[in-house]
Simulated scan of single mutants.
Amino acid sequence: MDTHSFEIFSSTAQLPETWDKVAHNNVFLQTHYLKVLEDSAPTNMQCFYIGIFEKSELIGVALAQYLNLNKLESFGERDQCLKTSIRNFIFKNFASHVLFLGNNMITGQNGYEFTKAIGFKDIADLLLECANAITNYFKDQKIAIHIVSFKDFYQHCAEELKKHQFSKIYEFNTQPNMIFELPKKWQTNEDYIAAFSKKYRDQYKRSHKKSAEIVTKELSLEEITRQEERIYELYHHVAKNAPFNTFFLAKNHFSTFKKQCGERFKLVGYFLEEKLVGFHTLLLNGNVLETYFLGYDDQVQKEKMLYLNMLYNMTEFGIENRFEKIIFGRTALEIKSSIGAEPIVMSGFIYHTNKWVNKLMPKIFPQLEPDLVWQQRHPFK
């Protein structure tokens, strides 16, 4: 840490000129995406942008997010049971002020990026120092941060961090990240279909037949703006029925995203009798295709197998545009595995700022996680 220092910024206007050069390999740390967060973050979220310096040279960038769960309309309405009620009570009363080092809105290791090789000891020290600095910032405002979480590390990085200061912090694994590594030999969607076993090729044909009346169309900024209320209605329906939420997007989020990111952000609408009944979004992140939020009319989804068709369409886009892999994120693990995605375990680290509560974290945290039972599918020959 002797040669490294950091500075925390609360606005993208304050960022150093070389920020995007450092963030070159990850679109989720580049200024055009950070401006999306700044202009259309969830109402209960505040973002911080961290510059890491070697002497006076910017060599690293990172993201932190503060969430006030007291402002949340719902933690998720799908699972109504005693365990969920207890979980919600605990979050409201003992964990309502949460600081994430990383990006809580997406799945994957997107919390930091460096242009120079830096040891994991220094990374661990820097992340903890940043967490302490932001915690003290809120303390000065009479806000006590309850929980600090370091989000989404692939196993190699988690193991390395645990060799240093992170060995003292509780490690957790939530639902895996569903990732589809696309074989280079697949040149077209027909190659993908041909790789299925008969059972899953039949599933593909059946789902497409069910959705024959659905018209799909990529929407322009003007069309997204015009459909903003409907897009949000469809998104909100899916979000509030998720097993657990820590935020809801702002209504202008998708139009802001398109405005800032242009062709790197895709919103595809699904129309039935000229009415928008669903949408999915994608972000082009170098050679990686990142799936983002989606929404649908529940009745149409059931009748037309809309969600499954969205997964197939995202996969087709990935194959035909020569992406190396598609990040499908967490949730709906079984159906995502049925189209070819595979589970990749990711770790997070979490501590409570109350030392007595923190000692109980290994017992408390597993009780807060929604129960997860699923069967991985293997769709290929």
Rank of each mutant, 00 (worst) to 15 (best):
H4Q: 09
S5K: 10
S11Y: 05
S11E: 09
T12G: 00
L15P: 09
W19M: 07
H24D: 08
N26K: 07
F28A: 06
F28G: 03
Q30C: 10
Y33S: 13
V36L: 06
V36I: 06
S40M: 03
P42C: 05
T43Q: 12
Q46K: 12
C47P: 12
F48W: 01
I52G: 01
I59L: 06
G60Q: 02
A62G: 09
K71T: 08
D79H: 13
L82R: 10
T84K: 15
R87C: 02
F91R: 04
V98I: 13
F100N: 10
T107D: 12
Q109R: 13
Y112G: 01
T115N: 14
E129F: 11
A131F: 11
A133H: 15
Y137C: 14
F138V: 02
I143N: 11
H146S: 12
I147H: 04
I147Q: 09
K151M: 08
F153L: 00
Y154V: 15
E159W: 04
K162T: 12
F166S: 11
I169G: 02
F172H: 10
N173T: 14
T174C: 14
N177M: 04
M178S: 09
M178A: 08
I193C: 10
S197W: 09
Q203M: 14
R206E: 09
H208A: 09
H208V: 12
K209F: 14
K210W: 02
I214D: 01
E218A: 12
L219Q: 03
S220R: 12
L221S: 08
I224C: 01
T225C: 04
Q227A: 08
Y235R: 09
H237S: 07
P243N: 07
A250R: 07
N252C: 03
F257P: 02
F257N: 01
K259F: 10
K259Q: 14
Q260T: 02
R264L: 15
F265K: 01
G269A: 00
G269S: 00
L272E: 13
E273Q: 15
K275C: 04
L276T: 05
V277D: 07
G295T: 05
L306I: 04
Y307A: 05
L308N: 09
M310E: 06
Y312S: 13
Y312A: 11
T315F: 05
T315S: 07
I319K: 00
E320S: 03
N321H: 09
E324A: 10
K325R: 07
I326Q: 03
I327F: 11
T331E: 11
L333V: 12
G340W: 04
G340K: 03
P343N: 10
P343M: 13
I344L: 09
F349P: 03
Y351P: 03
H352T: 04
T353R: 15
N354Q: 07
N354M: 05
W356I: 14
M361W: 06
P362G: 11
I364Q: 06
E369H: 13
P370C: 04
V373Q: 14
W374G: 06
Q376L: 06
R377E: 08
P379S: 07
